[in-house]
Amino acid sequence: MSTPNISAADLPLIGTVDSTPDVVDGLAFAKLYGEPLFKLPNDLYIPPDALEIFLEAFEGPLDLLLYLIRKQNFNILDIPMAQVTQQYLQYVDQIRLHNLELAAEYLLMAAMLIEIKSRMLVPSSKSQDSDEADDPRAALVRRLLEYEQMKLAAYDLNTIPQLGRDFLHAQVFIEQNTILHWPEVRVADLQQAWADVLGRAKLVAHHKISREELSVREHMSSILRRLQSSKFVEFADLFDPTRGAPVLVVNFVALLELAKETLIEITQAEAYAPIYVRLAYAPV
């Protein structure tokens, strides 16, 4: 049986042989920059604490303490401090090995439990209002009951269905048919549409100012003709309010000019009495 002749050039270099199969059961366990990865690289460093499994996760010291009490059916109003403190410290010792920053908050509660236990060992003083001694656990029990109440309320809120988590808005596509259904138009709709048209018309309306030439001399002549037919004319009767403010102003100026030229006399019998206008008497 003959063997084929293989030269050194036909062999790959030592250390560059890639034993990675192209496909492992048709699946890759990861992707790196979009490329499938079928085995871990030789130079990949994984820290010892990169992957951890937490069997029990607590949200804080009170959560852990409440868990230990409820798990063993202890009376929360009469907590056996020795057993609870011992179990609490065992858990704290475990988390100190992995996360010292996280353990700092739990160590504060551990110091509080040890303080309560030490206060229970020494004789306690009685309060002035009652003959019963103060319980060192009272403040801790109150905090635990308040925390448990808030935790149960949070559970109740979490059971309420939430959009995007428990249900989604239904979206239905209805194909339009060939029959057109025109909407019904009410009288109130027409009134509103007409009011909108009038409103837009007022916005684009132009204000026109007309110029009216008024002559003071013409008004002076008109006043003199009016006074020739009457001996006395009341001051207000010489003005026509319907002709507008410009005409009234010019008429008043004409009246003043006549009085200045002593062609008319303006008289009044007494204070607050009516004012009368008459032609001035020419000297004989």
Rank of each mutant, 00 (worst) to 15 (best):
L64C: 13
L65V: 02
L66I: 02
L68V: 09
L68M: 13
I69H: 06
R70D: 09
K71E: 10
F74T: 00
F74G: 02
F74Y: 15
F74S: 01
N75V: 01
N75T: 05
N75M: 04
I76V: 15
I79N: 03
I79F: 02
P80T: 08
M81G: 01
V84Y: 13
V84T: 13
V84P: 14
T85M: 10
Q86H: 09
Q87H: 05
Q87S: 08
L89T: 03
Y91N: 02
V92G: 10
D93E: 15
Q94C: 05
Q94E: 13
Q94L: 10
Q94S: 09
I95C: 12
I95L: 15
I95M: 12
R96L: 12
R96D: 07
L97K: 13
H98W: 08
H98A: 14
H98G: 06
N99K: 09
N99L: 03
N99F: 04
L100C: 02
L100T: 14
E101K: 15
L102R: 06
A104D: 14
A104H: 12
E105V: 14
E105M: 08
L107W: 11
L108H: 09
M109W: 01
M109R: 07
A110I: 07
L113N: 06
I116F: 05
I116N: 08
S118D: 13
R119W: 04
M120T: 06
M120H: 10
L121H: 03
L121W: 00
P123H: 07
S124H: 07
S125V: 15
S125P: 11
S127L: 07
S127V: 11
Q128F: 15
S130F: 13
S130P: 01
D131T: 12
D134G: 10
D135R: 13
D135L: 12
P136I: 08
A138T: 11
A139F: 03
A139Y: 02
A139L: 01
A139C: 00
A139Q: 04
L140E: 05
V141C: 06
V141I: 15
V141W: 02
R142E: 12
R142M: 06
R143S: 14
L144M: 12
L144D: 09
L145R: 09
E146P: 01
K151E: 05
A153D: 14
A154T: 02
A154N: 08
D156N: 07
N158D: 15
T159N: 09
T159Y: 04
T159D: 11
I160H: 07
Q162I: 04
Q162P: 02
Q162D: 08
G164A: 11
R165I: 13
D166H: 13
F167K: 07
F167Q: 05
L168T: 05
L168E: 07
H169V: 08
H169T: 12
A170Y: 03
Q171F: 07
V172Q: 03
V172E: 06
V172T: 12
V172M: 03
F173H: 04
F173P: 00
F173A: 02
I174S: 05
Q176A: 08
N177S: 12
T178P: 00
T178E: 11
I179M: 08
I179R: 14
L180P: 00
E184G: 02
V185M: 12
V187K: 00
D189R: 00
D189C: 01
D189Q: 09
L190A: 04
L190W: 02
Q191Y: 03
Q191S: 05
A193N: 04
A193D: 05
W194I: 09
A195V: 04
D196S: 06
L198S: 04
G199Q: 14
K202N: 11
A205C: 03
